[in-house]
Nucleic acid binder design. Structure first.
Lengths: 121, 121
DNA sequence: CCGTATCCGTGGCGATACTG
DNA sequence: CAGTATCGCCACGGATACGG
């Protein structure tokens, strides 16, 4: 591991920090799904069908280490574990939102481009 | 290549799009340095000493393909090439800014944490 | 000065099987 | 249900050398 949490490197631009923290393939998706409410492990698996158990577990660990999500274990049988955006994780919401807005606009402009290209042919 | 530009995958969350576009190791840094003014290839090399020519060239090409930067060739001897944030690239500024702000705040809270840990010992 | 070409190592990620 | 363990691919990225 060692790619997350307390990287000793000096970062000229703080953007690097963000990239580093949600640099996993599924990190943003996971956070996105946790935005509205806490989710169980199996729920996240269903919400993101393409992700493997390994990566889901690994990314959740890293997000937990970075204090962005809280992991709550209910001592029941069968075991029940819930993941929620931590108070600190809430501070990431504007970042997620801004990125999401831009992504939407970008996708729309791509769609328009494809449309006008089709109009030519 | 093939990792950038016109990915056919359906993206549930537009955040994926952003991640995809500035998913390179040096992309955010490059854009960051282009924020205030256009830069030459060699200037960017000096501003980001750790980056290799290969990666700098590769990332600049991808950013150009994604319409985020404009590449201007001055037909002089010796050749002079300038890279600038395109008009479309300007729309990315708020994203960069938000991420940067969060990164700063995060680094600060990490520093405080280290400080209080030191106070104990 | 501004790149491209080639070789190669690292690690992110997937697939599968196993455990408390 | 909620994970861990192990194996292996391959794309990302670094180093070096070469071309316009």
């Amino acid at each position: 591991m060692e790619r997350n949490s307390a990287a000793p490197a000096e970062r000229k631009c703080p953007i690097e920090t963000v990239i580093h923290i949600l640099g996993g393939k599924w990190k943003p998706l996971i956070l996105w799904h946790l935005l509205d409410s806490a989710k169980r492990f199996s729920e996240l698996e269903k919400l993101i069908p393409e992700v493997t158990q390994k990566m889901l577990a690994q990314h959740l660990r890293e997000l937990e280490n970075d204090r962005l999500v809280d992991r709550t274990v209910h001592p029941t049988v069968p075991p029940k574990v819930e993941y929620a955006l931590s108070e600190y994780g809430q501070t990431m919401v504007p970042v997620l939102q801004t990125m999401c807005d831009w992504g939407e606009a970008h996708n729309r402009s791509l769609a328009e481009e494809a449309e006008s290209a089709q109009a030519i042919s």
